[in-house]
Amino acid sequence: MGLRGYIARRSAYTLVLLLFVITLNFIIFEVMPGSPIDALASTGKLHSTTARDSVIAKFGLDKDVFTRFQDYVVNMLTFQFGYSFYTAAPVSNEIVARLTDTLLLIGVSTVLSITVGVFLGVITASRRGGVFDSAAVTGSLVTFSLPTFFMGVTAILIFFYYLHWFPLAHDQPDNWTLSPPNTGTFSGLVEYIQGRAQHLFLPVMVLFLFQYGGYLLLTRATMTEALTDDYILTSRAKGLSERTVLFKHALKNASLPIVTSIALGVGFILAGALITESVFAYEGMGWWILRSINNNDYPAMQAIFYIIALMVIIANFAADIILGLIDPRIKYG
């Protein structure tokens, strides 16, 4: 079976996986306590019984479970996520709005952690047992063990409260809601970038400290294995520079598990920054998920669980293909 057959089989399997996720989503939010109508009523948007009835009809809550399940499966597969119980805005609009903020935050921190983590991992593996190795490994273990919320509040305390270097919360200065900078002009653009960067710095720092250790340790482990292989001896014997040996030969072979781990990290990329975002009140995806959970916002949660599962499946799929491209030894079948 070639690549095409593999993709076909994998796609069918993905569909089954998706149906399972969709069903589980439905069951979870069906048994969740607290009526969504109550959640909506608590926001003060339902003033009369007629309003209440119309809302129940709008969200289809008057139909029986099986009809709702059918509608729900169709809606999910066609990406119609309906309206948020909490804000009454279309869920897809909210997700798009939050996703950009999250991708900025997690994108920057993940790229930074992968770069630094892999680089340090290569260095530590090549100097195994040395002072730098011990220091880097211990350091990464320490930052990896520190809970993100603890790092977050400590960072806020030091850099906002005592040093006044960085703002406290949110993804942009508060006064921008009234007078956003004019990004058309150069100075406005600079102001915009500066404002966003200031608000981005602390959460990125916390996420970076939390993430880079994992990549460092993984790279170090796979590199250590790779460095014992014969072709390394060969390339050293050829007289290649140590840098070429490490980064061109060893790292290329050691990078397979790293690619897999990045793919597995996609779920985290979309949802895992939940705690960091809530500590910094950074209005990204994680913050939004937490708000949805706290407000029994079922349509929002069903949509986001579905999307994250979909993304993880696609990422794993992509990782398999990429691995095949990097490593010609891998056969599909």
Partner: peptide
């Protein structure tokens, strides 16, 4: 199937 579900949000929902 369990691996593709978002970990922390799912745990939050289930504990709730």
């Amino acid at each position: 199937m369990l691996l593709v579900l978002p970990g922390l949000p799912l745990i939050l929902v289930l504990v709730a």
